[in-house]
Design a protein around this nucleic acid. Structure first.
Lengths: 238, 238
DNA sequence: CGTCATCCATGACTATGGTCAAGGATACAG
DNA sequence: CTGTATCCTTGACCATAGTCATGGATGACG
């Protein structure tokens, strides 16, 4: 049965994998698996949070709609990752909305259950804090990237994170469509196109939905150094 | 003795105020208060985190130095706020550095102590999660602001957060120097100057280190609407 | 096979903000 | 009062990316 598959993934999720089996079973038996179609809403900004969400299959994005109508993608989650921990435990309202960007399978765990387990088993708190910290960390990284790097450099880092090789050439599949990649990297689709075009200089070729990286080291260099320097080899002022 | 003052502030901090007195006393008696001069380092990126930090007096910034040398201010903390909870409990390395930006008094609480208290008192975990969530939330807001607002709009929101009035006029004191404000808002000091200049349109006058807001509502309007529309009153496409 | 829709690339134009350089204000020391 | 340091503002210039408009590729469907 598909549920067994799902449970296996859940047991391996970042949130649950370090918990004692007994508690994992309790959580699984009270949690619910649900399917979402592409584009379907998982929760909305300002809704009261009562559940923690674990991605079992597919991708989901967290995003905010600003008063002026523009959308900001805050993060994108894949199989094994979870979100909403801190909000749900605080019983606060979601600061973001969540939506499936591919067909997706999500495990929902009621936060009340977690709170009561936390009282018995402090290890759970540590687990939750750990995954919350991971989000914190990734947001900090995003902030830095947004403030200190150009669009093309952010794309370069994005590609580097996707490919698992340390050196030499590499070919990666773009995990979701370009509109979403652009959003995730804080730019418009048009800018993403242009960023791809610039990366040809750094030995990257885009074909359909996969990218061919000629030399990982070279690309890494492009991502980290100020682009002006990559050009005419100047010295930094400070 | 000054220590009593300090302890009073600590007891009122966001992290400790909701804890039972008994535990607060334990934490205080094992924590240490320390003074920092302006510009002094509190901790460095990549150091191992073993303490939680509570601001008692003054201001501190969290920041990252990118490989290319540019600094990103991630957050600024004031009296009563705390940072480093999630990292310290996970025993990970700091993803950011911290530095006093004014003369400051900081309470350091060993994380090992907190871990053992968490085992006795689940309420502590909730407290910590709450303040971690607050950070998470503020980072999300920053991301949104950076992606969806212009510099002048970010400055407008910054001023609005400082003034506690809901309508009418208002005068606020800029809490720290303009270089830091600029950093906190993701821009260079020059851009901050220009943003201030633009805000004259929205009824804001800057004199030395305080800002006079003519009409809070008006400024709020400026912060939220797309600046192009504030100009020629167009309709949004989408 | 043609039609239509979707997604993506590209061009032209504009605005926002970074960089560099210069100049004004303020505070403080002598 | 003068010299100096620090901080802030302003101007000129330019790179980056947003906006708008167009056109091409791909794929679903009749």
């Amino acid at each position: 049965m598909a549920h067994e598959q799902n449970k296996a993934v859940a047991r391996n999720s970042l949130l649950l994998r370090s918990l004692p089996d007994q508690h994992v079973e309790t959580l699984l038996s009270h949690g619910s698996f649900r399917h979402y179609d592409r584009g379907e809403t998982i929760f909305l900004q300002d809704e009261e949070a009562a559940e923690i969400h674990v991605m079992i299959e597919g991708w989901a994005k967290l995003f905010r709609i600003a008063p002026n109508g523009s959308e900001t993608v805050v993060s994108v989650f894949a199989r094994g990752e979870s979100f909403g921990e801190a909000v749900a435990l605080k019983g606060a309202r979601y600061p973001v909305s969540a939506e499936a960007v591919t067909p997706a399978e999500v495990l929902h765990i009621p936060s009340s259950l977690l709170v009561s387990l936390m009282k018995q088993e402090p290890q759970i708190s540590i687990s939750i804090l750990a995954s919350t910290f991971a989000h914190l960390h990734s947001l900090v990284e995003q902030l830095e990237q947004l403030k200190a790097q150009t669009g093309a450099q952010r794309v370069a880092e994005f590609l580097l994170k996707l490919c698992r090789c340390d050196s030499g050439g590499c070919e990666v599949v773009l995990p979701y469509d370009k509109v979403l990649i652009a959003g995730r990297l804080g730019m418009k689709p048009e800018s993403l196109s242009r960023a791809f075009a610039r990366l040809k200089t750094a030995g990257v070729e885009i074909k359909k939905n996969h990218a061919v990286i000629e030399d990982v080291q070279k690309l890494r260099g492009y991502a980290e150094i100020d682009p002006a320097e990559a050009w005419h080899k100047g010295g930094t002022a400070q």
